[in-house]
Simulated scan of single mutants.
Amino acid sequence: MSSLRHTGREVGDPRLDGYLDAARACILDVGWRRTTLTEVARRAGVSRMTIYRAWPDMGSLLGDLMTREWVGVAAATTEAAGDTTTPNGIAAAALSTVRALRDNELFVRIVELDPDLLLPYLLHRRGRSQEALLEILTAEIASGQESGAIRGGDARLMARSLMLSGQGFVFSALTMTDADLGLEVLDGQLLHLVSSYLAPR
């Protein structure tokens, strides 16, 4: 997976991975609101100024951490899905990504303790991880269109529409399950939704 550039840093830069690992461990232990750059520095075994030179505040550090985490999950699940230039391939990758994100321990911890951190990315603006995932999905759709495996249309619009659907399955799927309809059955509908949406008319 290629690194993601942001304000002079590179998510995926091995020099910063240790610091991000320390921040991840802090958040898993005590949550984001009780995690400080000083504590991240202590866990990483470096000076506080070393951390401050990379991130001016916890918000910017969290942004880099979430980008690394979510894009890393998507890259791994997409690679495992195989050919993601067909409707069924993209659907399989989408479902794997949704499931991996729902089970991701960092995601679960943030939702449990600090869910409001995620609200800006759901209500007001796209984050860098969303932009990166949209870029990947748009390229896959466009490639499938070139081969005729995916219906024609604006690949960017199609990718954004699928992203909205996927976010619902990540954040809200459990609100739509009960004794009659379990998560497995609901997830099966995501496969159908994505593959049908992309299939040639």
Rank of each mutant, 00 (worst) to 15 (best):
residue 1 M to Y: 04
residue 3 S to V: 08
residue 3 S to T: 11
residue 5 R to M: 05
residue 6 H to T: 03
residue 7 T to A: 11
residue 9 R to L: 13
residue 11 V to C: 01
residue 13 D to N: 15
residue 16 L to E: 01
residue 16 L to K: 00
residue 18 G to F: 01
residue 20 L to M: 04
residue 21 D to F: 00
residue 22 A to F: 03
residue 26 C to A: 07
residue 27 I to M: 00
residue 28 L to A: 02
residue 30 V to P: 00
residue 32 W to N: 02
residue 34 R to I: 00
residue 37 L to I: 01
residue 38 T to Q: 09
residue 38 T to F: 04
residue 41 A to H: 07
residue 42 R to D: 15
residue 43 R to Y: 05
residue 44 A to Q: 11
residue 47 S to P: 03
residue 47 S to R: 14
residue 49 M to F: 09
residue 49 M to R: 14
residue 51 I to W: 05
residue 51 I to L: 14
residue 53 R to G: 02
residue 53 R to H: 15
residue 56 P to Y: 03
residue 57 D to N: 15
residue 58 M to P: 01
residue 58 M to F: 00
residue 60 S to V: 12
residue 62 L to M: 14
residue 63 G to H: 13
residue 63 G to F: 02
residue 64 D to Q: 05
residue 64 D to L: 08
residue 73 V to C: 09
residue 77 T to Q: 14
residue 78 T to F: 11
residue 79 E to S: 13
residue 81 A to S: 12
residue 82 G to S: 11
residue 83 D to Q: 08
residue 84 T to G: 08
residue 85 T to G: 06
residue 86 T to F: 12
residue 89 G to T: 05
residue 89 G to Q: 07
residue 93 A to Y: 07
residue 94 A to T: 15
residue 94 A to Y: 05
residue 96 S to P: 01
residue 97 T to R: 03
residue 97 T to A: 04
residue 98 V to M: 04
residue 98 V to N: 02
residue 99 R to M: 10
residue 100 A to W: 01
residue 101 L to D: 00
residue 101 L to I: 15
residue 106 L to V: 06
residue 108 V to D: 01
residue 108 V to W: 01
residue 109 R to I: 00
residue 109 R to N: 06
residue 112 E to M: 02
residue 113 L to V: 14
residue 113 L to C: 11
residue 113 L to G: 02
residue 113 L to T: 13
residue 114 D to C: 07
residue 116 D to K: 13
residue 117 L to Y: 06
residue 118 L to C: 09
residue 120 P to Y: 11
residue 122 L to C: 02
residue 124 H to G: 07
residue 125 R to F: 11
residue 128 R to I: 06
residue 131 E to T: 13
residue 131 E to V: 14
residue 135 E to W: 04
residue 136 I to M: 13
residue 137 L to S: 12
residue 138 T to G: 12
residue 139 A to S: 14
residue 139 A to Q: 09
residue 141 I to S: 10
residue 142 A to R: 14
residue 142 A to D: 13
residue 142 A to C: 06
residue 143 S to W: 00
residue 144 G to L: 10
residue 144 G to H: 07
residue 144 G to Q: 07
residue 145 Q to C: 03
residue 146 E to T: 13
residue 148 G to D: 10
residue 149 A to S: 14
residue 149 A to N: 09
residue 150 I to A: 06
residue 153 G to Q: 09
residue 157 L to P: 00
residue 160 R to E: 15
residue 161 S to M: 11
residue 162 L to Q: 06
residue 164 L to G: 14
residue 165 S to M: 13
residue 168 G to R: 08
residue 168 G to K: 06
residue 169 F to L: 07
residue 174 L to K: 12
residue 175 T to K: 08
residue 176 M to P: 00
residue 180 D to H: 12
residue 181 L to W: 07
residue 182 G to F: 03
residue 183 L to A: 10
residue 183 L to H: 07
residue 185 V to D: 14
residue 185 V to L: 13
residue 187 D to L: 08
residue 188 G to A: 08
residue 188 G to E: 01
residue 190 L to P: 04
residue 197 Y to T: 14
residue 199 A to F: 06
residue 200 P to V: 10
residue 201 R to I: 04
